[in-house]
Amino acid sequence: MAGIISQRKLEEFRSDENSRFSIIYGPSKINSEQKESILLILDSSFNPPHYGHYTLIKRAIESYNTTSNVDISVLLLLSVKNADKGEKPAAFDKRLDMMELLSDHIQGEFPSLNPTVAVCKSAKFVDKSISVRNVLFEKGKIVYLLGFDTITRVLDPKYYVPQTLEEAMGDFMTHTRFFCLTRGEEDDKTDSQEFIKQMKYVDDISDGIYEPIIPRKWGSKIKIEVNNNSYCSISSSEIRRSLMQKDYASAKGKLPSNILEYIIESDKEAKSSIFI
């Protein structure tokens, strides 16, 4: 039934030229008048959703949920119009079903949360946030959850020409935060130059080292924490390679069991891998 719902809603969304954002599963509106409201957004290809995604969400929840006066919500967001990543090797409706299962996994660990699963047609965070504000989350703080490589791309001025980075993202950064985990192998965290560079990135922005390209005031909008568990270097492409060969044993432990079970059942139904 879930697959039927995701496919129908996805087709309706893609055929509506005026729609930029649509909710597939979960709450359709987030309101929090009594507390500080924070929406954590994981915008990814979810191909497939795995424990790297879950770790990023879990760490962000723990980082921001520090007092009883904070109301945390989660949005799992899939862009269905991405110039760099096409619909294959897993169709978008299959990914949405797996995102719902990731949502179930999150709620199993954090019972007070009921994540929203949504799709959008925008490529840039600025445009995505406008849609999120219009449809789902009018007031409160938005925090995008990213790996370190992604935050450096977001702040790369070449993607905003002919505007400067501040012209393109100035208003957006007023109401937005970024939460990042470092990348790299688990045992390579103390003295490598790359790791040191990652951990200094926010301080370097705040110290004005990247000015005039990146305003120093944006340093306070970015939080970087050390990703020090076994999923810090997990690879979606490696998981897909195992799944394409139906080597489910190799994928076990890299993604939640309910998602792996869904993949196995979908492969049986299709008589092929959903990642081919």
Rank of each mutant, 00 (worst) to 15 (best):
I5M: 12
I24D: 02
P27Q: 15
K29Q: 14
E33L: 15
E36K: 15
S37H: 08
S37I: 04
L42K: 06
D43N: 04
S44D: 13
G52L: 12
T55Q: 13
R59F: 00
S68D: 12
V70Y: 02
V74K: 04
V74W: 11
L77T: 11
D84F: 14
E87M: 11
P89S: 01
A91R: 10
K94L: 12
M98T: 07
Q107W: 11
Q107V: 07
P111C: 07
N114L: 12
V119P: 09
K121Q: 06
A123M: 13
D127E: 12
V132N: 02
V135N: 01
L136S: 11
K139I: 05
V143H: 10
Y144W: 08
D149N: 07
D156N: 15
P157Q: 04
L165P: 01
G170R: 00
G170P: 01
F172H: 08
H175R: 15
T176F: 06
L181F: 10
E186Q: 13
D188F: 09
M199E: 02
P212M: 02
W218G: 04
S237W: 02
S250A: 14
A251K: 01
A251V: 01
I264H: 00
K268V: 10
E269T: 11
A270R: 14
S272A: 11
S273D: 02
